[in-house]
Design a protein around this nucleic acid. Structure first.
Length: 478
RNA sequence: GCAGCUGUAGCUCAGUUGGUUAGAGCGCUGGUUUGUGGAACCAGAUGUCGGUGGUUCAAAUCCACCCAGCUGUACCA
C-alpha cells in the first residue's frame, strides 16, 4: 500500500484573488478622496453587516423560483443567511428598519465588500469592493442629477480627465413605454428584449437584431435563443436603438417614436428636468443614451452609467471588454417592499477594484511605496550597534529595519534588492571599531552595473558606497 | 449552465509516426568572491507529465470519463 500524502492546494477558489500592496495603497488613496467628496456633498457614512437574511435580499432576485442563485448562502439555526451581493438591498432594509428615526431624504454612502456566486470573467471577481451613494425618500430629480456630478467628481479625483470618461443617462420609462407600444406583454419576452438592447455595445446592431428574432450564434458556435418578435416589432426597436446620441439638446426623435405613449413622454420629461439641473450645476460630461438599460429588476426611472473611454488590457496585454465601472438609477419601490410605505429613492454604485485596475494601468495614481533602509547583520555580537542605528533612523521617522533572516551578506543584499530598498547600511569589524557606518546606495550601484567590464569592476563597490562616522549618518540619507 | 480551446519543474514553454534515464530558458541554492545585490562563468536541486480507468510488450503521446484553467456566451439583483 502506498500512502498518498495529502498536499493542500495553494490555489484560490475561482474568482477570488490576493491583492498586493500597490493596489491596496492606490485603493486607500482613492477611498480617502471619495470620503472628502462625500463630506462635501453632505452624505452620511454607514456600514451594514456582510450577512443578511436571505429573504431580505432575495426578494428582488429576478428569478424568484431560485432565490439563492448567485448568492453565497448557508443555513444558520433554521434561517438562511446570505453574503450581500450589493449595498442597495441592505440599505433598503436599513432604511425600512429605521424609517421613523431617519431624516428624509436620507443621504448615505457606504464602502463594502460584496460577493457574487457567478462565473468570474476578465477583471470580474466573486468578491469585490463597492462604493455606493444613495438618496432615500425623495422623488426630486435634482438628487439624480447631483449623483451624476458626484460620480464624475470622484472619477476626476482619481486623475481622470473629462475625455477619459462619460456619464450615460437614460430612463427606464423609455424602454417600458416602447414595450407597451409594441404590445410585448409576455414578461419573459420583455426581459429578453431588454437584455438584447443592453447588449448593443457588445454584439452590435446586427447581433441585437438576431437576439430579437430567432437567436444568435456566438464566436465559439454556441447558440442563444432570441425573443422571436415579428418583423415590424424588430424594426421599431432597431429604429429606437439608432438614436444613440441625444446630447444635441433635443428629444424630438424620441417623442416622435413615442407618438401618444404617455410612459415614454413621462420619461422624456424627466430627462429634460435632469438636463436643466445639469446646466445649473455646470455639469456637461454626459450623454443621453436611450440604449442604456442596466439590470432588470428594481430600477423605475432615470438610470445612469459611468464608462471609461479608453481601452484596458489584461495581464497578457490583450485588450479586454471593460464595460461600465459604475452606475445606478431610481428605485422607487425598493424600501416599500419592507414596510409598505412610499419611499422613492435613487443611488449609484462604483466597482472600486475595477476602477483601480484601470487607473493603475493608466498611471493615474501615484502612490509612494516606502521601502525601508536595510541594516545588514554581519555578526550577532554587534546587535547593540545595529539597534543604535535603527533607533537613530526611526526616531527621525525614517523607515528602517535590521535584517530579520539568518543569511549571509550576499543574500542580505539580494533581499534588499528584491524589496526595492534605496540604501543598505553595512557595519562589520572595521566600521564598528571606528564608530562609523558604510552606506551603500543600491540605485547608484545598479546604474554602475551597466558599465561593468570585468570582475574587478564588479567587485569594486566604492562608487556606490560611502563610509561616514555614525553622527553624520542622517546627513547622508536625508 | 452551454460552446470552443488548454493542462508537462516555482514561472514561461518544447517534447517527432507511442520506444530506454522527460528537456530548455528564467527563477532558486551553492561556488569563483571566508564582508557586498545588479554582470559573467561553473556546479546543483526541483516533476504524482491535471486525475481515474482502458488499449498496448511499451503511454506525457492513443481512447473514455472526470477535474481545473482560459476565451466566448448565458445570468449578473
Amino acid at each position: 500500500m502506498n500512502k498518498k500524502i495529502f498536499k493542500p492546494s495553494s490555489e484560490l477558489p475561482a474568482g477570488f484573488i490576493d491583492r498586493q500592496e500597490e493596489e491596496l495603497l492606490a485603493r486607500d488613496l482613492l477611498i480617502s478622496n471619495i470620503k472628502k467628496v462625500m463630506a462635501k456633498y453632505g452624505f452620511q457614512y454607514l456600514e451594514t453587516p456582510s450577512f443578511e437574511f436571505t429573504d431580505s435580499i432575495g426578494k428582488f432576485l429576478p428569478d424568484k423560483d431560485r432565490p439563492s442563485e448567485g448568492v453565497f448562502s448557508f443555513e444558520d439555526d433554521k434561517k438562511w443567511l446570505s453574503l450581500r451581493y450589493d449595498l442597495t438591498a441592505p440599505l433598503a432594509r436599513y432604511a425600512a428598519k429605521n424609517f421613523n428615526n431617519l431624516p428624509r431624504p436620507f443621504k448615505r454612502y457606504q464602502l463594502g465588500t460584496v460577493w457574487r456566486n457567478e462565473k468570474p470573467g476578465p477583471g470580474r471577481f466573486r468578491e469585490f469592493l463597492q462604493f455606493d451613494a444613495d438618496y432615500i425618500g425623495t422623488s426630486n430629480l435634482f438628487a439624480d442629477a447631483e449623483l451624476c456630478c458626484l460620480i464624475s467628481e470622484i472619477l476626476s479625483s482619481c486623475g481622470l480627465t473629462k475625455k477619459e470618461f462619460i456619464i450615460k443617462i437614460s430612463n427606464r420609462k423609455l424602454t417600458k413605454g416602447l414595450l407597451e407600444k409594441l404590445k410585448i406583454k409576455d414578461e419573459d419576452k420583455q426581459s429578453i428584449v431588454l437584455r438584447a438592447i443592453d447588449k448593443l455595445d457588445r454584439v452590435g446592431l446586427e447581433g441585437v437584431q438576431y437576439l430579437l428574432g430567432k437567436g444568435r450564434k456566438d464566436k465559439s458556435g454556441d447558440f442563444t435563443k432570441g425573443a422571436e418578435l415579428d418583423e415590424t416589432q424588430i424594426k421599431e426597436i432597431i429604429n429606437f436603438l439608432s438614436i444613440k446620441d441625444l446630447s444635441d439638446n433635443n428629444f424630438e426623435r424620441i417623442e416622435k417614436i413615442a407618438e401618444d405613449n404617455q410612459t415614454i413622454l413621462d420619461g422624456v420629461n424627466e430627462l429634460i428636468s435632469i438636463k436643466k439641473y445639469f446646466s445649473l450645476l455646470k455639469f456637461d460630461n454626459f450623454i443621453f443614451d436611450p440604449t442604456v438599460v442596466r439590470g432588470l429588476e428594481y430600477y423605475t426611472g432615470p438610470i445612469f452609467e459611468a464608462n471609461l473611454t479608453f481601452s484596458v488590457k489584461n495581464n497578457k496585454g490583450e485588450e479586454i471588454e471593460f464595460g461600465s465601472i459604475g452606475g445606478g438609477g431610481r428605485y422607487d419601490d425598493l424600501v416599500k417592499r419592507f414596510n409598505n410605505q412610499d419611499c422613492p429613492s435613487t443611488g449609484i454604485s462604483v466597482g472600486l477594484d475595477r476602477l483601480i485596475y484601470a487607473i493603475i494601468q493608466k498611471n493615474k495614481i501615484k502612490v509612494e511605496k516606502k521601502t525601508p533602509i536595510l541594516i545588514c547583520v554581519f555578526d550577532e555580537k554587534y546587535m547593540d550597534y545595529y539597534v543604535k542605528i535603527l533607533n537613530l533612523l526611526r526616531t527621525k521617522n525614517i523607515s528602517a529595519e535590521i535584517y530579520s533572516g539568518s543569511a549571509n551578506i550576499k543574500s542580505q543584499l539580494k533581499y534588499a534588492d528584491k524589496r526595492g530598498c534605496n540604501y543598505v547600511i553595512l557595519c562589520g569589524d572595521d566600521e564598528v571599531s571606528k564608530n562609523s557606518v558604510a552606506i551603500k546606495n543600491l540605485e547608484i550601484g545598479k546604474q554602475m552595473s551597466d558599465s561593468l567590464k570585468d570582475r574587478n569592476d564588479w567587485k569594486d563597490s566604492s562608487g556606490s558606497q560611502k563610509t561616514v562616522t555614525l553622527d553624520k549618518l542622517l546627513d547622508e540619507i536625508i
